[in-house]
């Protein structure tokens, strides 16, 4: 199915998506949006892993994507549990309010 696509296109696409995620982490204050931008960055890396797996005709890259997905799922589960507990105590998930760990 692949015709006329070079690996450079996937390099550029992954770079752009990764940087959109990085800008989101820097520019937003809502902690849940920051989590979603981290997911976006992980997905950019996953896409590049699959592209190189296809390029080298090697399944290891795709298996690595499985592990990245498992780690991302674990991270999201624990992170959202922490966030909901913080929201219960502080009534906010604004990173500027959460800056001090005193309360």
């Amino acid at each position: 199915m692949i015709n006329g696509i070079s690996i450079n296109m996937y390099l550029m696409l992954s770079t752009v998506i990764f940087i959109i995620g990085a800008i989101g982490v820097m520019a937003r204050r809502n902690t849940i949006i920051i989590f979603m931008c981290i997911e976006l960055m992980l997905n950019a890396v996953n896409l590049l892993l699959v592209a190189f797996s296809t390029l080298h005709n090697d399944g290891s890259g795709q298996v690595f994507v499985f592990f990245v997905m498992a780690v991302a799922a674990a991270e999201v589960a624990v992170g959202l549990a922490i966030l909901s507990m913080i929201y219960r105590n502080v009534k906010s998930i604004d990173t500027d309010i959460l800056g001090n760990l005193k309360n």
Binding site: I5, S6, I7, S53, T54, L55, N57, D58, G59, Q62
Partner: peptide, 15 residues
Amino acid sequence: TEQIQLSQYGHSEIG
């Protein structure tokens, strides 16, 4: 970087 076409390596069985 070098422009490598994916088609010359593409193999439908790996996925």
